[in-house]
Amino acid sequence: MDQLAALRVFIRTVEAGSLTRAAAELGLPKSTASKLLSQLEQHLGAKLLQRSTRSLALTSEGSDYYERAGQLVAKLHDLDTDLQHRRSLVSGRIRVDVHSTMAHAVLIPALADFRARHPGIEVALGISDRPVSLIGEGVDCVVRLGRLADTTLIGRTVYEDHLITCASPDYLRRHGPLTEPTQLRQGHDLVGYFSALSGEAKPLVFQRGAEKIKIAAKGFQANDSMGQVSMILNGLGVGQTFRSTVKAHLASGALVPVLEEWTAGTEPISVLYPPAKQQNVRVRAFIDWLVEHLDAQTGRS
């Protein structure tokens, strides 16, 4: 039984003088409201209302319970209103840095929801795969992909994102189907990714059971993840990228997963911020919202 919902049905029924009107005002089917009321009485082991087809009256137990329950629900309403009011008053500017593909595919489409929740917070969004110095560049928090090495920051790992091997339908029509990773070593174009910091190119990795294959991406390469995805979309070759950032392209058919019997591994998606920002209400509000949104994106909430 949802006791809070049952309490609201009971209080509204008393105040409306009718279960039918109470159900309508609460947006519930009458059968649901009646069931909640019956469950509440069973839970309490007491009759709260004397009901007939024409009248409704409180029992002595119901009268006492109505007075106390009304006070409780009123306090809960005041608590909700106060919290919503305080959240609406949070204001100021925050600087957030985000990985390129995640910014375009995941974060930017959801920023209207953040603005609706926190209209007073101004978000300055830095979009780049280049690692930034949070303290040196005045960044409040950053979303990063990969294993965390900077121990001076506070980090919240949100989820593990799967790497996916994919290509455009046009590319596959021109080059034929793929059944084994080793086919990529000849007769195929690859789209790789290299670090904007070190210049090191990441190989394409394939694993099936104990077997692991690494293939150097010697075709096209980009040091910006959005650029890499754009290359794959435009039929320049086969590449590996994060599933969450190309989910829409996979759903539309603009990209096609290949070599699905082979896993490409996972990387953590984390939110990091300097210890000095731990008590900043604007930063906390953004991080809490971001974690909730990323959870929803991965279907975990």
Results as ranks from 00 to 15, higher is better:
F194W: 08
T165L: 04
G237Q: 03
I213G: 02
T182R: 15
G239K: 02
G187F: 01
A201D: 05
R243A: 10
S230H: 12
G192W: 02
V246L: 01
L204A: 09
G209N: 09
N223I: 01
K218H: 12
H249E: 15
M231S: 06
Q221Y: 04
L236P: 07
R243S: 13
L178H: 12
L259M: 05
E200S: 12
H188I: 01
A210V: 10
G209D: 05
E200T: 13
Q240D: 06
S168K: 07
L259T: 00
S230T: 12
L204M: 14
I215W: 08
L233S: 04
F242Q: 13
G209P: 05
S244P: 12
A254C: 06
S198Y: 10
A248V: 09
F220R: 08
Y193N: 03
I213D: 03
R173M: 14
P181K: 10
R243C: 07
H188L: 10
A248N: 10
L190T: 15
K214H: 14
E211L: 13
C166N: 05
Q240L: 03
A167D: 01
M226E: 11
T245H: 00
G219W: 02
L204H: 13
R174K: 15
V238L: 11
G219Q: 08
S230L: 08
G237K: 05
E211I: 13
A210H: 11
G235V: 02
R174M: 10
K212M: 08
A216C: 06
Y193K: 09
A210M: 10
Q240A: 09
R174F: 10
Q221W: 05
C166Y: 01
I213C: 03
M231P: 01
K247G: 07
